[in-house]
Nucleic acid binder design. Sequence first.
DNA 1: CCAAAAGTGTTCTCTATACACCCATGA
DNA 2: TCATGGGTGTATAGAGAACACTTTTGG
Lengths: 245, 245
Amino acid sequence: MESQKIKNISVDCVVFGYNTTEKTLNVLLIKRYLESATDSKILVNDYVLTGYHVNEDETLDDTATRALKELTGLSGLYKKQFKAFGNPNRLLDKKDQLWIKNEDFNSRTITVAYYFLIKTEAINLNENKYNAKWFPVNSLPELGFDHESIILEAYEDLKIKCLSEPIIFELLPNKFTINDVQDLYESILGIEIDNRNFRRKLINKKYIIPLDEKQVGVSKKPAQLYMFSKDVYEKMFKKNYLISI
Amino acid sequence: MESQKIKNISVDCVVFGYNTTEKTLNVLLIKRYLESATDSKILVNDYVLTGYHVNEDETLDDTATRALKELTGLSGLYKKQFKAFGNPNRLLDKKDQLWIKNEDFNSRTITVAYYFLIKTEAINLNENKYNAKWFPVNSLPELGFDHESIILEAYEDLKIKCLSEPIIFELLPNKFTINDVQDLYESILGIEIDNRNFRRKLINKKYIIPLDEKQVGVSKKPAQLYMFSKDVYEKMFKKNYLISI
DNA sequence: CCAAAAGTGTTCTCTATACACCCATGA
DNA sequence: TCATGGGTGTATAGAGAACACTTTTGG
């Protein structure tokens, strides 16, 4: 027997992925398309986050994990619940109402939003059954429901979080160059960083481990590859209480 | 006509208040008491957070504001939505079930938790209709539902937040001494701070404004009073992107 | 005059920041 | 040999951290 879904509580997932070659931070979105049964006029044609309604017997984290597994086939990804959205008007736009008519849920639904960080290389979208597609977070397509503001709030949270926790490495391949990390910070934060200073800073961290390996297949001086050791990071982690107000 | 409440979605409020004389960070809790109708055995006798179910036509923030207004009579307080709790077992403890029987809501309820910061001096609990009482966050009484873990997570969030935003002043009287601020940080973070260094640091902030006033009614050298200027703070606020991983 | 807490300076170390050129490689 | 991005060093300024004694007041 399938467990019962709760019709007014959902989880939405903002999936962030970083494209190392294009140096863009992207969000994974799925297509929403509906045309009129009578005159085949396009009624809904936009994108939304992936999300599911919470089941009676599930935790919120379970629902989020299930949604990601469905969408990408992956589990064990970095995940963060960052905010609940419960404005009574959040699903009341005309096209959203049309869409909901075809679905089995309440138009007064509150959603608990999560964001996920994934290595884009880890998934292949060519045969994705939801028509999932990456969009740069700075140039999003038309979005349904209140999903644009959900994405923007997730992004704000990510910006703050990546300054104090080593979550950036969730977005990079296991082997990366120092400049990859710098580019990623620059993409996320929209700032420029001095390469020499950044380099020194990173190389001095014990949990940034140089490999006996260099880039291959590049038409220039191949860069040194590094990996991030979560183990070392956690062992040397020392909470500091620096008050900076 | 009264608006309809949603029976499976609630908001719970962790109200933090700081007692300047006892130097304790406290949480405001309300009594939950129920005895058997037949043999007057005590069935439920503990404390819970204040909370309400969300109304159909309300935002989550509205519900939180309404709950605080009911409890304290105050509005315009510092408020932060910090996490949603949706474990299917969160209300299934025996005494919680007994309690719920007398109430009109679903035992599969998810709650969106907020915390509030208030100046304890601003409220008078003597004539509080909910029997609200302050408890030190480090020595909480027996709590109903999953409210202990909600409080602990709120506290963790507060610890982090107070390091980077000037929210500490929400917990202090408008006029305070430098040592008041230090004591408060020490209470919240559970650390010791060097008075000379802390003092210098704070006095150098332009938004910490010395008043032409000293403590009165103290049996020792009266200390200089200061105020916090949110205006000045916001004008000089400059986002810095210091990466500290 | 005593108890209690307020208030005060200096030194050292570490980190952030600014800044410009040579190097190694594949094509 | 050239285009491309990789990689390198130094100097300065500012902030954090460690540390102990004197001052002021009310009682």
